[in-house]
């Protein structure tokens, strides 16, 4: 990934910045330029909206053969999370074993390293999740 490509999405990855439709109040992550329900009526009425990062695990999978950059973390958990404000997000659940995760478990956002461009390139940071003890 190029430095600029990640930089453009920093707001999303650091702060869960999505959008809210001012017509129907629905919240979206990642951001949308138009509401899929209100269509034309939402044009120009999509405002920035920051999600809290709290949610529940709706489904999850345990990755045993992961990406090379994540080899020190296998087996790691990827979960489909329902955010408390609505909309879903796919994220890694950290600091626990696969048996600690279950559907319906409450999670909170944490700030973690997502990856890096080799040993001399930039480091990417952003959201991951952790079960609430």
């Amino acid at each position: 990934m190029s430095v600029a490509r990640f930089w453009r999405k920093q707001d999303q990855r650091y702060n869960l910045m999505g959008t809210e439709c001012q017509v129907c109040g629905r919240k979206f992550f990642p951001n949308k330029s138009m509401c899929p329900v209100c269509h034309r009526k939402s044009i120009g009425k999509m405002n920035k909206y920051q999600f809290s990062g709290n949610g529940i695990v709706e489904s999850y999978t345990v990755v045993h053969a992961g990406m090379p950059q994540y080899r020190s973390q296998v087996p790691y958990i990827l979960a489909y999370i329902l955010l408390e404000e609505g909309d879903h997000i796919l994220g890694q659940i950290v600091d626990c074993d696969p048996e600690d995760v279950d559907i319906g478990k409450k999670v909170e956002m944490v700030f973690r390293k997502l990856g890096q461009e080799g040993r001399s390139g930039t480091i990417y940071y952003g959201y991951k999740f952790r079960t609430i003890l």
């Binding site: 650091y14 020190s72 973390q73 950290v94 944490v110 700030f111 973690r112 390293k113 997502l114 940071y125």
Partner: peptide, 16 residues
């Protein structure tokens, strides 16, 4: 620290 933690992630968590 976990493999995906460093001084930056720790600083951000404390600041938040």
């Amino acid at each position: 620290p976990a493999p995906d933690e460093d001084t930056i992630t720790i600083s951000v968590m404390a600041a938040r």
